[in-house]
């Protein structure tokens, strides 16, 4: 049966899982348009529809990463075009703050993306998703749940008497 391969690197069959939050009026509609236009793009995104990008709670993004997402994409209306006047600006503010926090957590910038995609830009849905999948594939799995488990184990188990493991930083090796 077609199992979703769990995010483990190395065997070549891994491919990233991306959670997308799309606003109802622009980006979700654009993704519908991409479908109606039969554009083809990578099957790695799973979309959650919200009324406005302003509804995206930072906790949603953290939850997604914590539950094993390799990337999070947020799609909203272009500046000045928000169906609710300014929800997209509110998202932009949160995005800037959250980006810094995620970086501090060791999550590479390419994994978290905010894009303005209007209802007419089906083509942009395709190019953004393909681009994001490409970049994250190059980065490899994030596996935050695994890391969290490791950290938990480190906290509970006594440290082994060997030299400390080298600090891992994410580097794109595209």
């Amino acid at each position: 049966m077609e199992n979703e391969t769990p995010p483990t690197s190395g065997n070549g069959s891994w491919s990233p899982r991306i959670i997308a939050f799309f606003c109802n009026w622009c980006t979700y509609t654009a993704a519908d348009l991409a479908g109606v236009s039969r554009l083809k793009y990578a099957a790695n995104t799973r979309t959650i529809r919200l009324m406005c990008s302003g509804r995206v709670d930072p906790q949603f993004i953290l939850e997604a990463f914590a539950k094993g997402a390799d990337g999070v994409l947020i799609g909203g209306c272009h500046p000045n075009d928000c169906h609710y006047a300014e929800g997209n600006y509110k998202m932009l503010r949160r995005f800037q703050l959250l980006k810094r926090m995620l970086k501090d957590l060791g999550i590479a910038e390419e994994r978290f993306r905010l894009e303005w995609i209007s209802a007419a830009e089906g083509e942009k849905v395709k190019s953004v998703i393909n681009d994001m999948v490409k970049k994250i594939t190059a980065l490899g799995p994030l596996d935050l749940p695994g890391k969290v488990a490791d950290w938990d184990r480190e906290m509970t188990e006594p440290a082994p008497a060997v030299e400390s493991a080298p600090v891992e930083t994410e580097v794109a090796h595209a």
Partner: peptide, 29 residues
């Protein structure tokens, strides 16, 4: 019904019908 205030409430005390936090978290999970 944009939900901007819901996302910003620090105590999570605002609820948006049809797009409740619990609904979206369960969708993510």
């Amino acid at each position: 019904g944009c939900g901007t205030c819901v996302a910003a409430c620090p105590s999570g005390s605002i609820v948006q019908n049809l797009f409740e936090d619990a609904e979206i978290f369960s969708e993510i999970d």
